[in-house]
């Protein structure tokens, strides 16, 4: 029954006026994108390390296997969708909803 309880979507951004720290607002946006990108790179590195550790535990030498690997069509399509979501996250700041009302200053 609880799944039938109504709910509204959660807000994605805070009610706040985003401060500008640099003379050119583009620089502020670049910092945001840089940090999102760095975050995604880190996510990959954690995943890769886990992958290598699990594979090694199972006796698979990954380097050789990876060179010979080709994705299936399903995998390739899924990767393409993931890639778009990735780009959206990295460029989040450009698509951020405009603040509803100016809080802060």
């Amino acid at each position: 029954m609880s799944a039938a309880d109504k709910h509204a979507p959660l807000p994605k951004a805070a009610k706040a006026k985003r401060p500008q720290f640099f003379d050119d607002p583009g620089t502020d946006h670049l910092v945001s994108m840089f940090l999102e990108l760095a975050s995604e790179v880190w996510v990959l590195r954690e995943r890769l390390q886990a992958l290598e550790d699990v594979a090694e535990d199972k006796g698979v030498i990954l380097e050789k296997e990876l060179e010979a690997y080709a994705p299936s069509p399903e995998r390739a399509a899924a990767l393409a969708a993931d890639r778009q979501a990735f780009i959206e996250r990295v460029t989040f700041v450009l698509n951020r909803e405009p603040p509803e009302s100016a809080g802060g200053d």
Binding site: S2, A3, D5, H7, P9, L10, K12, A13, A14, R18, P19, F21, F22, D28, V31, S32, L35, E36, S39, F92
Partner: peptide
């Protein structure tokens, strides 16, 4: 230095909530 400190700190603050929101959307019920 102040500008980078500030913009990185501000972004990190926003990223805190964004690192939870997709999970919350999925798990909220």
């Amino acid at each position: 230095y102040f500008r980078f400190y500030s913009s990185m700190r501000y972004n990190a603050q926003e990223m805190v909530w964004r690192s939870i929101l997709p999970i919350l959307e999925r798990e909220r019920d």
